Computed example of a mutant assay.
Amino acid sequence: MAGNVNTIKSQSICTKSITTVVQGKEITAQLSLMEEGIDLLITGGDKSHIGAVEIANPDGELFCVNFPTHKDDVIAGKWCRELWNRYKVQTVVSVGIHYDAATRELIEEILNKTDKMMEELLNG
Rank of each mutant, 00 (worst) to 15 (best):
L122S: 05
K116W: 04
H70V: 12
N4C: 03
C64D: 04
D73G: 14
K71T: 01
A29S: 09
K113L: 11
H49N: 05
E26D: 07
I107H: 02
G96V: 02
K116L: 10
K116Q: 15
I50W: 04
T20W: 05
P58M: 14
K16C: 06
E119N: 15
R104G: 06
A56L: 10
M1H: 13
A76C: 04
I110L: 01
L62R: 01
I38S: 06
I27A: 03
M34P: 04
V95F: 01
M117H: 00
T15G: 06
T43F: 00
A102P: 03
Q30W: 15
K9N: 10
K9D: 04
F67K: 08
T19H: 03
G44D: 05
Q30R: 13
G77R: 09
A52G: 01
L33R: 11
R86M: 08
T7Y: 06
G96I: 01
T69G: 01
T19W: 02
R86W: 02
M117E: 14
I75P: 10
K9R: 10
I75Y: 03
S17R: 10
T15D: 02
V22R: 06
T114C: 06
S32R: 02
T19I: 15
N85M: 12
L62A: 05
T43S: 12
E120V: 13
E26N: 13
M117N: 01
V92T: 11
M1E: 11
D115I: 11
I27Y: 02
I18M: 05
E109C: 08
H98A: 07
T43H: 04
G51V: 00
W79Y: 14
I27D: 01
D39Y: 15
A52V: 00
D115H: 14
Q90F: 09
E61T: 00
A52C: 05
G37V: 07
A102N: 05
D46L: 12
S32F: 00
E119S: 14
V53D: 11
I18T: 14
T7D: 05
G24N: 12
S17M: 09
Y87M: 03
T7M: 12
A2F: 04
A101D: 15
S32N: 12
L40T: 01
K25S: 03
K9L: 06
A2S: 10
I97A: 03
L121G: 07
Q11R: 12
E105D: 15
S48Y: 08
W84M: 07
D72N: 12
M117W: 00
S12E: 15
H49M: 07
T7K: 13
K113R: 15
I75A: 10
D72I: 07
N66T: 12
Y99F: 15
V65G: 06
L33P: 00
T91H: 00
E119A: 09
D59R: 10
A29K: 08
T43E: 09
T91N: 01
Q11G: 07
W84R: 06
S94E: 15
V53R: 02
I107P: 00
G51F: 09
L122C: 03
M1C: 14
G60W: 05
G24H: 05
V95T: 04
K25I: 03
I55L: 12
E108M: 09
A101F: 14
I42G: 14
